[in-house]
Structures are given as C-alpha cells and as structure tokens.
C-alpha cells in the first residue's frame, strides 16, 4: 500500500531524484562550525513564522502601533511568547549570520569555485541588518523613534545625495506615519522577498559546489 503510493508520487514528483541529489550527497568531514548556515536559515524561517503571526494584530500607524503591541503582549493568548521569540530571534539571527560569515572567512571558503556564494552571502548579511534596522522602529516606542531619527540622520549625512536619501527613508523631512508605513513595507515585503530570492541562490550554489572542506597545510 505505502509502496504503491510512494511509487505513484515518485513517478510524478521525482522523489528518488530529490533524495539522491539533495540528501544523499557526499560532503567533506564537517564539524559544528558547519551548522551556522542552516541555523541562519532556521532563524529566518522562525522569524518569518512569528512575524506573520504578529502582523495579525500589529497596526503600522503612529496612533495604534504601540497600543497594538501592548495588546499582543498582554491580551493575546501566547502573544508575549511569539513577540518574545521574534524580538530575541532578531538579535540571535544577526549574531549567527555574522559568525557564519566569520567562519567562511577564516576557512577561506570564499575562494574558487565559491566566489558567488560569498557575494550572495554578503547580500544576505546586509539584508539581515536591514531587517534589524527596519524592525526596530515598528514598536513605535521612545527608543525606536529616536534611534531611527538618528539612524536616518546618519544615512542623510551622505554628501550630495544625503537629503534625497534622508527623505526617501523617512518619506519626508521628519519621522512620521509615512516612515512607519514604509519601514513596515520594507520589513514584511521588500526585504523578506529579496532575502528569499538570495537564500534560494545561496542554497543552489551550496548544493552545486558542495560545502568546502577545512583547509590543511596542503591548501
């Protein structure tokens, strides 16, 4: 019975091919440092899942953002847990992605033939920081408001283009409802979409070239 079902699915989905190409791959001897990439992916998925839950109650407007988070924390069943995981997961994700980058740097895994994997990886690191920056404003509390004021000011210190960048980030000369709205859009649509695309490219390249081995004196 199960065999029939499996064979039926295999003929149509190519399960056996998936198994040989994705799972049954030979790899160089790895150690615990090799788990940081998959840990980053896990954290991304966790942030995605908890983030989706949060958008059910969160309202991206200056009048309601703070109160909607108070509501999530105090009145929604397990809202505090979802928000807590999302809050701490963000910090941990920045940390894990950064250490993953350091590991790749130290073992020189960015060299031939994995140059593009590194390039995409730096894109992922910067987007993760972008997620942290945009997400920090969303609770609309004093710390968020003033940190973003200063953060966008720093981006606005760019010569010539500074004023344009500042107004693009804030949606005007000052932090306003528009700023919150576009940080929200960037945080839940623009950056995640770009992240998913880059993660896809990153994973394809890893499967294509395999994980690098730890260097020995021969290398």
């Amino acid at each position: 019975m199960w065999n029939t079902l499996y064979n039926w699915l295999d003929e149509r989905l190519g399960l056996n091919d998936l198994y040989t190409n994705l799972l049954d791959r030979p790899e160089p001897l790895g150690n615990w440092w090799n788990t940081l990439g998959s840990a980053s992916l896990f954290l991304f998925l966790l942030q995605g899942a908890t983030g989706i839950f949060l958008t059910v109650y969160y309202t991206p407007s200056p009048d309601h953002a703070y109160d909607s988070i108070q509501y999530i924390m105090n009145d929604v069943a397990f809202g505090w847990l979802i928000r807590g995981i999302h809050h701490w997961g963000a910090s941990l994700m920045v940390l894990v992605v950064f250490i993953h980058m350091l590991r790749v740097f130290v073992t020189a895994s960015y060299k031939y033939p994995r140059e593009l994997t590194w390039l995409v990886g730096i894109g992922l690191l910067l987007m993760t920081l972008g997620m942290g920056f945009t997400g920090y404003l969303l609770p609309w509390h004093q710390m968020a408001y003033w940190a973003t004021t200063v953060g966008t000011q720093i981006a606005g210190s760019l010569p010539f283009l500074g004023d344009f960048v500042l107004k693009t980030l804030r949606g005007g000369p000052d932090l306003s409802a528009l700023t919150l709205q576009r940080f929200f859009a960037a945080h839940i649509w623009i950056l995640p979409a770009a992240l998913v695309a880059l993660i896809g490219a990153h994973l394809y390249l890893i499967i294509k070239h395999g994980e690098s081995h730890f260097p020995d004196p021969e290398d």
């Binding site: 198994y19 994705l22 799972l23 049954d24 791959r25 030979p26 790899e27 160089p28 001897l29 790895g30 615990w32 090799n34 788990t35 940081l36 998959s38 840990a39 896990f42 954290l43 966790l46 505090w80 847990l81 928000r83 807590g84 995981i85 809050h87 701490w88 997961g89 941990l92 894990v96 994980e211 081995h213």
Partner: peptide, 29 residues
C-alpha cells in the same frame, strides 16, 4: 573520506536549530 549530508550533517544542523529554539523560548519566557 568525508560524510553524507543525510544523515551526518543534517543531524548536527537539527541539534543546533533545536538548541537555538530552546534558547529563544527561555529568553522569551
């Protein structure tokens, strides 16, 4: 002279991911 992605590498990946999840649960709580 290496190992296989399944189950050798995945095993470690799952343990680390579970550990991270546990840490997050503790931090959130």
């Amino acid at each position: 002279r290496g190992e296989f992605f399944w189950p050798d590498s995945i095993f470690k990946d799952v343990i680390v991911s579970l550990g991270i999840f546990l840490v997050l649960l503790l931090l959130a709580t």
